[in-house]
Simulated scan of single mutants.
Amino acid sequence: MSIPTTPQTLSVALQRLDPDLPVPAQARTGDAGVDLHARQDVRLEPGERALVPTGVALAIPEGYAAFVHPRSGLAARHGITVVNAPGTVDAGYRGEILVNLLNTDVREAVQLARGERIAQLVVQPVVRPVFTEVAELPPSERGSSGHGSTGSTGAAASPLTHP
């Protein structure tokens, strides 16, 4: 049995700061993110990072945020990632989207050309938390276990411990 679904859309105002670059778009129907393009050529030496402009500024509606994610192909082929992944674009920000790229390869430099797809932007609803201070949190099955507490498939691996 098939459950019908409908694609969700959200109107987002976009200012093109570089008319020669494409408007961010999905590479394929159903993709979660839209591609962001480099506004300039950039060379990243091993271990080097750079703030790369994308040529677009957005007005994300209140109640939403945009998140800049690494592109899996650049990561797999060249070790390129987004330093603060995912980078957060708040609803109130109106400046150019900049992507903080890092070359994690220890041997090879990477040359990225103007117009190349360098990251993905995913727009998501966000909620504003209202915190209530309590003396103790309610129990859960997991409790405070984290950072490797469920183990590993490697025989030599052991859960991390907290100091």
Rank of each mutant, 00 (worst) to 15 (best):
V52K: 13
P53A: 11
T54V: 09
T54S: 13
T54N: 10
A59D: 11
P61G: 01
P61T: 00
E62I: 05
G63K: 02
G63H: 02
G63P: 04
Y64N: 13
A65Q: 15
A65I: 05
A66K: 01
H69F: 06
P70E: 13
R71Y: 03
G73T: 08
A75G: 15
A75K: 01
A76P: 11
R77F: 08
H78W: 13
H78G: 09
G79A: 14
I80Q: 00
V82W: 08
V83K: 12
N84I: 00
A85C: 08
T88S: 11
D90A: 13
D90T: 08
D90K: 15
A91Y: 04
A91L: 02
G92I: 04
I97D: 04
I97Y: 02
V99M: 12
V99Y: 13
N103D: 14
D105T: 13
R107G: 00
A109E: 15
V110H: 05
V110T: 15
Q111R: 12
Q111H: 12
A113D: 13
R114Y: 07
G115P: 06
G115F: 11
E116W: 04
E116A: 15
R117Y: 02
Q120R: 11
Q120F: 04
L121T: 00
Q124H: 05
Q124D: 10
P125A: 07
V126Q: 03
V127E: 14
R128C: 06
F131Q: 03
F131W: 14
T132R: 13
A135Y: 11
A135T: 15
P138M: 09
P139D: 14
S140A: 10
G143T: 04
S144K: 07
S145T: 11
S145A: 13
S145Q: 13
